[in-house]
Design a protein around this nucleic acid. Structure first.
Lengths: 185, 185
DNA sequence: ATAAACTTTCAGTAATTTCTGAAAGTTCAG
DNA sequence: CTGAACTTTCAGAAATTACTGAAAGTTTAT
């Protein structure tokens, strides 16, 4: 893997951002390297290009595979394992999004459901429970909505995103369009 | 602040999740405590309730204020400062979302723009640049879209979210509805 | 001006996370 | 079965991040 200045700065940047996106620096760098490479790349090449230990590389790749952002690519007649991106950019973004939802929202939803089953012992608890309930509903809407968007598939999703402020106008016409359905509030 | 078991488990959980949401354990706990409290709460009370130092509390509050998740609440005739949530649950969620966008997407967009200005030196770089370009476009769409959704305001946004699979049907009718506008592709 | 009641800052320490590299594991050719 | 070429694991080291508490700062009352 030839590390040109362009690739180097992209890789470094994705390393820095990595921690904000849910993984650590090295994992971010490995991902960038694999995505930007125009050919499958071996673990050893990654370790060399990034100046990290072979062990660390192995763990990073394991993590990226668990996120399904990277997959193995077998080259016939090679003993080494090569790696390539787990899909196109859109797919990768989706996977990061999904995975983060699992880690950031689902556990909270589950706890909130439990806490909402208890009968509040006093005024303070009743108030806290109200708030927790609001949070629960919000997270539920967001989850359902993101699920919905995923079901639309890439092309419709793209249409929707490109629609821009048309969404607002469309909503105003909604009731005429889909009579009887979802007449909210 | 009376720490009932219900409140304690919620606070602890938000502490654990805190790091996944962009801040650290203590900051998450402080936020939960303030949101769930039914009355303004002083820094000392927070430190006591969470068993953390006064200094740490001060820093946590500073961070939460920078995220605009918490604000000061002056009580006449009191020298101490009290704190309350920066808004209702929906507002808070929005602010977290916005703030994270600023930290997670904007810097990358900016770097990508720069990198895309360079002329690729060879095949490998040209390929890498294509990928970077795809990433840039994706992030740009997402940013514009999230901006659009925010402009809709809470109620319309809620309508849209509750619409569920209706969104798909609506998109199919779109061109009849908004003729000439945004005929994508 | 002084003191009391509070807040913030920050150097040093503690806790947590990440990384290394040696050892153990796997696979395959001969 | 043996050894070469690779991979993974994991204990300890290094790096990073978070926390404490004492000192300095601020505000208000007298």
């Amino acid at each position: 893997m030839k590390m040109t200045p362009l690739i180097t700065s992209a890789v470094m940047h994705f390393g820095e951002m990595g921690s904000r996106w849910g993984f650590n620096r090295t994992v971010g760098q490995i991902l960038a390297l694999i995505v930007l490479a125009d050919e499958p790349i071996s673990a050893q090449e990654i370790a060399d290009a990034l100046n990290i230990s072979r062990g660390n590389t192995s763990m990073g790749l394991k993590e990226l595979q668990s996120w399904r952002l990277v997959k193995q690519h077998l080259v016939p007649g090679e003993r080494r394992e090569f790696f390539i991106a787990g899909g196109d950019i859109w797919t990768l973004a989706n996977r990061v999004f999904e995975e983060r939802r699992k880690r950031e929202i689902d556990p909270t939803m589950s706890l909130l459901r439990d806490l909402l089953l208890d009968t509040p012992a006093n005024k303070t608890e009743a108030n806290a429970q109200d708030k927790l309930n609001e949070i629960h509903d919000l997270l539920e809407s967001v989850t359902a909505w993101s699920q919905e968007l995923q079901n639309l598939g890439p092309d419709k999703l793209n249409t929707l995103m490109k629609l821009g402020s048309g969404v607002g106008r469309m909503l105003e016409l909604k009731d005429k369009l889909l009579p009887g359905k979802n007449s909210v509030n």
